[in-house]
């Protein structure tokens, strides 16, 4: 079985090669600027000059646009509609929908808010697409994050793809023994019921086995551990992190100053 255990897509690109912490800084800086910058068009501009070029630079353009079209846009679109209809601000009524007034202000407000969320989710998506979870965690652990914490995060990230892979093997096993799963909806739904037990049990068994396996390799040992994987952290990374930190601090000060 070749399972996909994360969203990560293995490619060689400038963004992939950046240190995971640098990418976290990048994501946070993008979010801060999108939410705090007072200029109305900032989030829209960020999509044009940061998110889209970054996805192309990372050579995950196709995957990112697919995720954006299928997941991010529908969710953000829903938020936009909710805010446009239920935001009781503004005087200038553009149109009415039954008892709901849609004003110019509420529309503008909803649009920029939606774009901010779009930037935030997109930044995270790009991060997940270009960073392998174990690389991220090794790097953070090396910088002092407790191992237990990394373990919890990693296993949480992996639960869904693991359950998915398991469900697929079980469905294959059931079809091989004559269970018709193509077609009839009722039958298909029914065939999922016997799946639940083994899925949960299997996952629990796996958790225990994994705990034993990592303990056998000295997980709770207090001594200093070295890492097999060398995660590069170049001077470019350091410079970038400083620059991004400055941008983030500037955004915060600007916001505080103006308010």
């Amino acid at each position: 079985m070749h399972e996909r255990l994360s969203f990560h897509i293995k490619r060689d690109s400038a963004l992939h090669r950046l240190n995971p912490l640098t990418k976290i800084f990048l994501v946070l800086a993008l979010i801060l600027v999108a939410f705090l910058n007072p200029w109305y068009w900032t989030p829209h501009l960020l999509v044009l000059i940061a998110i889209t070029p970054l996805s192309l630079l990372a050579r995950v353009g196709a995957e990112y646009f697919r995720a954006a079209a299928r997941l991010i846009l529908p969710a953000v679109g829903f938020l936009f509609l909710m805010q446009a209809f239920f935001q009781p601000v503004g005087e200038e009524i553009l149109f009415q929908f039954y008892f709901l007034d849609v004003t110019r202000e509420s529309l503008m407000f909803a649009f920029s808010n939606a774009m901010r969320i779009f930037v935030m989710v997109s930044a995270f998506t790009l991060f997940l697409l270009t960073t392998h979870p174990s690389e991220l965690m090794s790097d953070l652990t090396r910088r002092g994050l407790p191992g237990q914490f990394s373990y919890v995060i990693i296993s949480t990230l992996q639960i869904l793809p693991q359950i998915q892979a398991r469900a697929q093997t079980t469905i294959a096993a059931q079809r091989s023994r004559g269970l018709e799963t193509e077609g009839h909806f009722i039958k298909r739904a029914g065939s999922l019921i016997p799946l639940v037990g083994p899925l949960v049990l299997g996952s629990l068994v796996e958790v225990e086995e994994r705990a034993i396996a990592i303990e056998a390799r000295g997980f709770t040992s207090k001594s200093l551990k070295t890492s097999l994987h060398d995660i590069p952290d170049s001077s470019i990374d350091k410079a970038l992190r400083w620059a991004l930190a400055v941008i983030a601090i500037l955004s915060i000060t600007l916001k505080l100053w103006l308010s």
Partner: peptide
């Protein structure tokens, strides 16, 4: 043919029983 239909002619014992068993 669907896998379920072929199952009436071909029985296949998986290499790994853990991938095949799911009952109580």
């Amino acid at each position: 043919c669907s896998v379920a239909k072929l199952a009436s002619r071909v029985g296949y014992v998986f290499q790994n029983p853990d991938e095949q068993l799911f009952s109580r």
